[in-house]
């Protein structure tokens, strides 16, 4: 059975546009304008500039990314890395010197707990006293 290739490497003097998708590892050291998608790891090297979303299991950034990054396992922003865009990952490491400008979402798998509704509405004029805010001591 033929493998799905040895992975993709974008060298330092290469410029790409479009969707770069591989089932194996992707390493980028050049310029990419478009999506970078791997089912395994994505490495954005120090010389790389990516303009577009990056998606992978394990994403390591040492270059510049302008776009949303999604790492299903771990995202590591190295000291030379710059990210301008949103991040979504379970495990985030930002090294000292790394630049991140954007929003970060970290799904934990836990359900969000909403504030319980009060049993009865406090009528206007009924100001809660200090006693009502202190839980009963057993």
């Amino acid at each position: 059975m033929e493998t799905n290739g040895p992975g993709t490497t974008v060298g330092v003097n290469v410029a790409l546009s479009g969707t770069l998708k591989d089932q194996n590892d992707i390493s980028v050291f050049g310029m990419v304008e478009g999506e970078v998608i791997s089912e395994k790891s994505v490495t954005i090297g120090q010389t790389a500039q990516v303009k577009g979303p990056v998606k992978g299991e394990l994403v390591t950034i040492a270059g510049v990314v302008r776009g949303a990054i999604s790492a299903s396992e771990k995202l590591e922003l190295l000291e030379t890395g710059k990210v301008f865009g949103s991040i979504s990952t379970k495990n985030l490491v930002i090294h000292s010197g790394g630049i991140f400008v954007g929003k970060c979402e970290m799904p934990t798998g836990e359900e969000t707990v909403e504030e319980p509704e009060p049993d009865s509405e406090i009528e206007s004029g009924d100001t809660p006293t200090e006693e009502t805010l202190i839980p009963d001591e057993e």
């Binding site: 290469v14 410029a15 790409l16 546009s17 479009g18 969707t19 998708k21 050049g30």
Partner: peptide
């Protein structure tokens, strides 16, 4: 057909 590029 979905990825274009150039290199030296």
């Amino acid at each position: 057909g979905k990825l274009r590029g150039y290199a030296y």
